[in-house]
Design a protein around this nucleic acid. Structure first.
Lengths: 223, 223, 223, 223
DNA sequence: GATGAATGAGGCTTCATTCAT
DNA sequence: TATGAATGAAGCCTCATTCAT
């Protein structure tokens, strides 16, 4: 007979998937991959165990979908925002602002992100699928390209663009970290300015020469 | 009755503990806490399963000891090096150099460090005992104090010292990250200069005003 | 979503629980708590190991349920029978008869009972939950009350009622013991009479004075 | 060469064995067979694990020796005391007194006794060796013989002598039980009289006829 | 499709026992 | 002889996954 899914069915299915993903995200975020059991997810989602498996083939796949979905959102949001500014400086600022906004709104996911995406990208045996890694790397590449362009425009110092990109990315994470702690924060806008300032001009006031290594006296180059 | 341990026994015991810690470190680093089984450790260490338990009471305790031991080394080394310089600038440089040197020599541990120490106090999957957290925090505090002093001396901008400290720590981690990747690196000394430069003076060349936010015009201080 | 259990499911569940309890009872009785393994129970019950755990949370809990279930039956049966007679003498007889009947029919349980209930509240090896202890104590209390009433009616000698109650209980156990041995027994009714006789009038014929202690001359009461 | 043990050595060895047996008794009594570990015994005895094994071949053997030793003492003491009286009545009283005295002085052992000797004699799979069972049975047989003799002398009712013997033995246990509880007791002598009275003349005053079963009216038989 | 009972591999841990020193 | 480190079998329990209804 091969009846196709009715539109209602299709819609419901999508809602269920969405619901399970949300529930799973919160539990994975709270307890980590291994401490999370499929039963916990099923209970909280108010589905039977088997139902979860009918939507996602395995725990691993569910986990990947959870992260994938959110990383997609993050990357889309961030790259979208960056594209909104024509200048490199504007793109830098938009990147910082977008990433921080997104994390502020997705604290649960932030945990997963830090554990699964930020840190263990280097862990060969880790859980994340290549596909996801690729997505994330594409964002980094966008950032790298932007910085390279900035370097050509004389905006950035002539340093390895990828290192600068990672540095910028990491600086935003430093602040994201602290969102998870108890510290009170200024507005996202204010936080964002601090990151921007640090990234562009560093922590030092202008006048100092460094001491031990006397080969780096960088005068305020008034080219 | 009940002769005490002979010196030889004591020595062997220490050797075995050391050996098991090394083996465990490498497996934990490669596979993470949950994927690592005590049997794997026992096999690689060439001891019986029960022997591992006679030295360390449980998987958890072994894991903690692995990290604790190395973090102790790291913190001692880094704070020792910092103390070697009288000036704030020298201390910054020594901090960066020491941390990078240590990680270059302890790549396996670097993975554990990033997962357990760098990723913050947040994740149930991560298991860090308070004791360890404390040790790490004490290092951060040393760093913070140093920066605060530097701020008083007019070396650093008047920003939250703790944030600056974390920023500096995080910047070194960015480079440590890349040690785990495939990229070739310059000498530690050269890497160190890049980090120092970024931390102190940022990525930007001097002339630019940022665009979107026009409230931060930092004149090239006409000293 | 999440349909509730169908009646059939519920019924099956009860059957399985009953079945596992029976199997567990026989093995616990035969081998004791520590020698019994969950695997043995699973094998004999023809379920997977995990299934046993899905019904009872742990070995300990299963053990408690086994004993609890039967002690409940015993206590209910015995107190029910006692209530069936208005006179104290009748209650004594009904107590004895009921307990002996019950044990004749539940020889496997008798072993557990002797180890866990009869042997007092003392042994770490023995694991009786308070709840169970309470149930048993309530039965003893019923017995004690009855004896106290009998004492007031001049039926029993003026002795500590609780000691008499325990004595009566223990006497029935003496016979229950022998059910586990190889000896052939008369009908329960006949056994019951012997216990009753011993409890009420003792082992001695009437005329003797005891020798060493000459302070107890009980004249054959010249009514 | 085959040097025999010097007398000193022999003496020391005996002391050690005695010491270990005492320690083992207390732990076995407190924790039961399975919860007691050889390590616990070794620690408390202040010997090395291996030393325990050099004296007793295995945990099981040690356990058996512990009980065996004490049961020997008990049986010797009780039968010795019984032999001290020429009359059956005196023997009954001496049996009761001796057993109660012994248990009063050996409360730790009393637990083991109740668990291992009193109850599980019927548990086919139990731990006790035949040898021990035999020793205990020999005591019961002495008791049985005494009662049989008493029956011939018209002192006891014409009942199965073995059942009477067990009944008497069990009655003393009822009191021993309560030694382990918190109840205060009279002197052993007073307790002893209660047991004796119950055993010989039962709990009833003389005048009552039992009610339900009217086929047993036992007149105070003035033969 | 949805359900949840059943499965069983696999992990952690304990502890009696052995044996080289 | 005394020691205690080393051994590894065996037990308890969890949980991802399957499948009959």
């Amino acid at each position: 007979m091969l009846k196709l899914l009715t539109p209602r069915r299709k819609r419901e299915r999508q809602q269920h998937i969405r619901h399970i993903l949300d529930v799973a995200e919160s539990i994975f975020a709270e307890q980590g991959f291994f401490r999370t059991t499929m039963r916990k997810i099923a209970l909280k989602a108010e589905f039977a165990l088997g139902t979860i498996y009918s939507y996602f083939g395995s725990k691993r796949q569910l986990y990947e979908r959870v992260i994938e979905t959110k990383v997609d959102e993050l990357v889309d949001f961030v790259t979208g925002e960056m594209a909104g500014s024509p200048s490199v400086q504007g793109q830098v600022e938009n990147f910082i602002r977008a990433k921080m906004l997104f994390f502020r709104k997705n604290l649960a996911f932030l945990r997963l992100y830090l554990v699964e995406v930020d840190v263990p990208r280097l862990n060969a045996e880790h859980i994340l699928p290549q596909k996801l890694r690729d997505k994330y790397d594409s964002m980094l590449r966008t950032l790298t390209d932007m910085i390279r362009q900035g370097t050509r425009q004389g905006i950035f110092k002539p340093m390895d663009a990828e290192i600068l990109a990672r540095t910028l990315d990491s600086l935003t994470n430093v602040f994201a970290f602290s969102y998870l702690g108890s510290k009170t924060h200024l507005s996202t806008e204010a936080d964002m300015r601090i990151v921007t300032e640090l990234f562009l001009h560093g922590a030092a006031t202008r006048q100092e020469p460094t001491q031990n290594s006397n080969d780096r006296k960088e005068p305020c180059n008034e080219s």
